[in-house]
């Protein structure tokens, strides 16, 4: 067996089974709730997850929107987004 293919701009991603995005008022933090664990999200991770998992299109489309929204070079945004998504997938928070 070989490792799973990396998530690229053509992939569609979703939250993995048992994973939910939640805001915890007590701590004032957004987090991913997952089986027996959770991940506190910073602003960038939250924006990426909303753009990539809430949409009907591929990751590339989400990168376009994020680049426009943050007025940042698309190449830099794309690298950050793909790194983050692959890391979250390896930890079981998102699925492609």
């Amino acid at each position: 067996m070989s490792a799973a293919a990396l998530i690229d701009e053509a992939a569609r991603v979703r939250l993995a089974a048992g994973v939910m995005l939640r805001h915890d008022r007590r701590r004032g933090q957004w987090m991913l709730m997952a089986p027996e664990r959770l991940l506190v999200l910073d602003d960038m991770a939250l924006a990426v997850l909303r753009a990539c998992t809430g949409a009907e299109d591929e990751v590339g489309g989400a990168i376009d929107r994020l680049a426009a929204e943050y007025d940042a070079p698309r190449g830099e945004i794309a690298a950050d987004v793909l790194d983050l998504l692959n890391d979250l997938r390896n930890k079981g928070y998102v699925a492609a």
Binding site: A3, R89, G92
Partner: peptide, 9 residues
């Protein structure tokens, strides 16, 4: 572990 990355935590 390397082959399981992205498939099984």
């Amino acid at each position: 572990l390397p082959e399981l990355a992205g498939r099984l935590v």
